[in-house]
């Protein structure tokens, strides 16, 4: 029997803290078993800068700026299956706590009126992505196939979803694995 081709997996963090990626690493020695079945494309683990055609994309963090939108679209365009991982990707999380403030209020306070700030100005470098008026969960911007909730999800939860998917099953997390915090 021919050896099945490894599934290509890409991962990234948008408006997130890389905590979910740390949790992916927390899979520990099972990563070795996983690497028998998958190989990484774009990911902080590989430092590949752009995503090529992939089977699975895993996205941490919400959408808070223009760059996040580009990266998210790149993943959606290239990944057959897209997974949102963690609270921020799923409901905006901590970054979305700014959603009741206007972007002008935030930029003014951070760069100009904050206590102790002298001669501050709002940066206008084209290298810096512009902020969206609200932080959005990623399912509000592109179609998402699966979700792994948690802040971060436990390594076991991530393992369960990935192995379910690899086994061709709809992922399911029971009591103890499903968690929003």
């Amino acid at each position: 029997m021919p050896v099945p081709a490894k599934l290509r997996v890409a991962t990234t963090s948008l408006a997130g803290c890389f905590g979910c990626h740390m949790s992916i690493l927390d899979i520990d020695e099972r990563l070795l078993a996983l690497l028998e079945l998958i190989e990484f494309d774009r990911s902080p683990l590989t430092d590949i800068k752009h995503c090529g055609p992939c089977d699975i994309g895993i996205i941490e963090g919400g959408v808070c700026n223009a760059e996040n939108v580009h990266v998210l679209r790149e993943f959606r365009a290239n990944c057959k299956t897209l997974i949102a991982i963690g609270a921020c990707a799923i409901n905006g999380g901590l970054p979305a706590q700014r959603n009741h403030l206007s972007v002008s209020t935030i930029l003014n306070e951070v760069y100009q009126t904050q206590h102790g700030l002298v001669g501050g100005f709002i940066p206008n470098d084209p290298e810096l992505p512009l902020l969206l008026d609200k932080v959005h969960p990623i399912h509000e911007v592109v179609k998402i196939d699966y979700f792994i909730p948690g802040c971060p999800p436990s390594a076991d939860a991530i393992w369960k979803v990935l192995t379910d998917l690899l086994a061709g099953k709809t992922p399911e997390l029971g009591h103890g694995l499903i968690s929003y915090d």
Binding site: I90, A96, P137, F147, P149, H175, I178, S179, Y180
Partner: peptide, 18 residues
């Protein structure tokens, strides 16, 4: 209850009320 019913995401667009 959301755990019990296996709610993996909020699915809809958020209202983000103030």
């Amino acid at each position: 209850t959301a755990y019990e019913l296996n709610m993996m995401s909020p699915h809809f667009d958020h209202f983000f009320p103030d």
